[in-house]
Design a binder for these strands. Structure first.
Length: 265
DNA sequence: AAGTTCTGCAACCGCTAGTTA
DNA sequence: CTAACTAGCGGTTGCAGAACT
């Protein structure tokens, strides 16, 4: 079958809408194997009928182990307001300063926040005032282009916490545990990531992938073999359980990969 | 109790910047 | 150099559950 037909098939087979628990488990296992960069590859290889884009989004906004769930703390709220006044609707940038929070979450929070504020103002002002439909224009003041030019010095190479997730998080975790991971053995320097702020000592996933590629060229293979059968193996010590031990999350049953012994793919 | 409105959040869409061949 | 591809970003939508009438 030709590539075009393959793509056509993929298009037709693509699923949309809410993710099922089964899909989540499948995605987690494949991200654990291949890292959180090659989304298209993961989408294809995992057998999920999802686009790479959709997989990435699901991981970044919901499945990433570094995510905090639950309500924003007053400190976080203050920080968002502060940063938003500085940067406007640069949600991903704001998210970088709020570990465990995603741009989507902050964006949603802000919308709610603005809506509430608008309503309060409405109430405070006379009924004749025309602050109408503030909520549907959440960026009423934030699309101001000046926000983009403010604070050029604030331009840093800060990394989003979930940018460094996937393999890198695995590496950190693995460096604490005793097991060997393919990546750990490939790039020991990556274990020195400063995880406190995420801004220093950063080793990009690209570098790691390059390392993998170069090692593969040298005939050294990682523990997983992408050319063979796509059996999801939880080969890294990074316990999947931890993904589900966050606030308000139940743990998935004992057979994480094949609940009810169903075939995943 | 039933219907309506509101709220919070997950997910999609379209665009852009960066990367690769 | 450039075209194609991919990941990431910001805006928007749709839905489920809560709150209200």
């Amino acid at each position: 079958m030709g590539q075009d037909q393959d793509d056509m098939m993929m298009m037709m087979m693509t699923r949309k809408g809410p993710w099922t628990e089964q899909e989540d488990v499948q995605l987690i296992s494949f991200v654990n194997m291949f890292g959180d960069r090659r989304w298209d590859f993961i989408a294809k290889v995992s057998g999920l009928k999802r686009s790479g884009k959709s997989c990435r989004l699901r991981w970044v906004n919901y499945l990433h182990p570094g995510l905090k769930r639950g309500k924003m703390t007053p400190q976080e709220e203050r920080r968002i307001v502060e940063l938003h006044s500085k940067w406007g609707n640069r949600w991903s940038r704001i998210a970088r300063k709020l570990p465990g929070r995603t741009d989507n979450e902050i964006k949603n929070y802000w919308r709610t926040h603005m809506r509430k504020e608008a309503q309060e103002k409405k109430r405070a002002l006379s009924p004749s005032s025309s602050l109408s439909d503030f909520s549907s224009h959440s960026s009423i003041c934030t699309n101001n282009p000046t926000f983009d030019s403010i604070n050029p010095m604030m331009e840093t190479d800060e990394k989003n916490f979930y940018d460094t997730g996937g393999l890198e998080m695995l590496i950190i975790t693995n460096s604490r545990s005793s097991n060997t991971s393919p990546i750990k053995s490939i790039d020991a320097t990556a274990t020195s990531v400063n995880s406190s702020e995420g801004d220093d000592g950063y080793t990009s996933m690209d570098e790691i992938w390059k390392n993998i590629d170069s090692l593969e060229k040298d005939g050294i293979r990682p523990m997983f073999d992408t050319s063979n059968e796509m059996t999801p193996l939880p080969i890294w010590d990074y316990s999947l359980n931890t993904l589900w031990m966050m606030d308000g999350h139940e743990e998935i049953g004992s057979n994480m990969f094949f609940p009810d012994n169903k075939r995943v793919i």
